[in-house]
């Protein structure tokens, strides 16, 4: 069997499959279905300094080959995450987890990340500067290279764990933002967050989503995500985590060939709760089919003729 393990910022993952933030809760609900230790790791629900209810419903709309969500970072706040969610996770997960952090000011990002950084179970901080569904936070930090660099630099000073900055596709030049984050001290880049979109109900003549706009994910965005992973891999030297519309082991391999060290799986978890596990289980077969002995060895292989 080929070698599936990869090194993500100094921590070995048994395989590169990582359920993405916002599609996997705090893991323990999926642990009722299967042993989540079989995953590389997962990125838990985006956490902010204070509790957030999120946006009014409807928060979900279907699209061709995908979906829009406008959840708006609903979470119980970092203190409750540490006091209530992480203990539940520890009972079912023995690996390091990726802590997804969001905020509305540099100070909030810094405080939240610093608190989670102290938790033994946290392996990486994934800095979400790309949520399109909140106002005055999230994506507004990740669409400007200077602001992205400032928040990265500030959080980097406050944490010891590897810092992975999660980028938005809603920009003109994603490579420029990635370079700015790398220069500011990021240990890795993950991308893409969702693409901003909307739907209108002709019956009511109003936007379907309570928030008007939402983030597009699912297979529809895969080619866009793959292109951006390709661009960022060429732009930076730090590891890249690829995500956006990954639904199969083949998709994961494409991401790795484009330059991803590991691969996050998002919307697929919502239509099939076993989706991430199925990708893990299918990878050896697909690796063999394409003559891949080690995933780490073919990272970025599509860039070299």
């Amino acid at each position: 069997m080929g070698k599936m393990s990869v090194d993500l910022c100094g921590i070995e993952l048994e395989n590169p499959v990582i359920p993405a933030s916002g599609t996997f809760g705090f893991g323990y609900e999926f642990a009722e279905l299967y042993d989540i230790n079989r995953l590389g790791t997962f990125s838990f629900k985006g956490t902010t300094l204070y509790p957030r209810f999120g946006n009014p419903t409807p928060r979900i709309a279907e699209t061709p080959a995908g979906m829009l969500n406008a959840v708006g970072l609903q979470n119980p706040g970092v203190e409750k995450v540490i006091a209530e969610e992480l203990p539940k996770l520890r009972r079912v997960f023995s690996k390091k987890v990726m802590a997804n952090v969001s905020g509305f000011s540099e100070e909030e990002y810094e405080k939240t990340a610093a608190l989670l950084d102290k938790e033994e179970i946290v392996g990486w901080i994934e800095l979400n500067v790309s949520c399109p569904n909140v106002h005055g936070g999230g994506m507004s930090f990740g669409t400007d290279p200077d602001r992205a660099a400032r928040v990265t630099e500030r959080v980097k000073r406050a944490v010891k764990k590897p810092l992975i900055v999660k980028l938005s596709p809603n920009v003109t030049d994603v490579a420029e933002i990635a370079r700015a984050c790398e220069a500011a001290g990021a240990d890795g880049i993950s991308l893409i967050n969702t693409l901003m979109g909307m739907r209108i109900d002709p019956g009511t003549r109003r936007p379907i989503l309570g928030n008007v706009t939402g983030g597009l994910s699912g297979p529809a965005v895969f080619p866009v995500a793959l292109r951006m992973v390709w661009q960022v891999y060429e732009a930076v030297k730090i590891p890249v985590v690829g995500m956006g519309g990954v639904t199969s082991a083949e998709d994961a391999i494409e991401m790795i060939l484009a330059g991803a060290t590991a691969v996050e799986v998002g919307a697929a978890n919502l239509t099939d709760p076993m989706a991430s596990l199925k990708i893990v289980e299918d990878l050896p077969r697909v690796m063999e089919k394409y003559g891949i002995d080690s995933l780490a060895d073919v990272k970025g292989a599509a860039h070299h003729g």
Binding site: G22, T23, F24, G25, E29, F30, K45, F53, G54, T57, P58, R59, I60, A61, M67, N69, V71, Q74, I208, N269, L270, T271, P273
Partner: peptide
């Protein structure tokens, strides 16, 4: 309510 997953993962149907 309009739902994403239907099993509690996505927070799409919170009241």
């Amino acid at each position: 309510e309009r739902m994403g997953c239907g099993f509690g993962a996505c927070m799409g149907c919170t009241i």
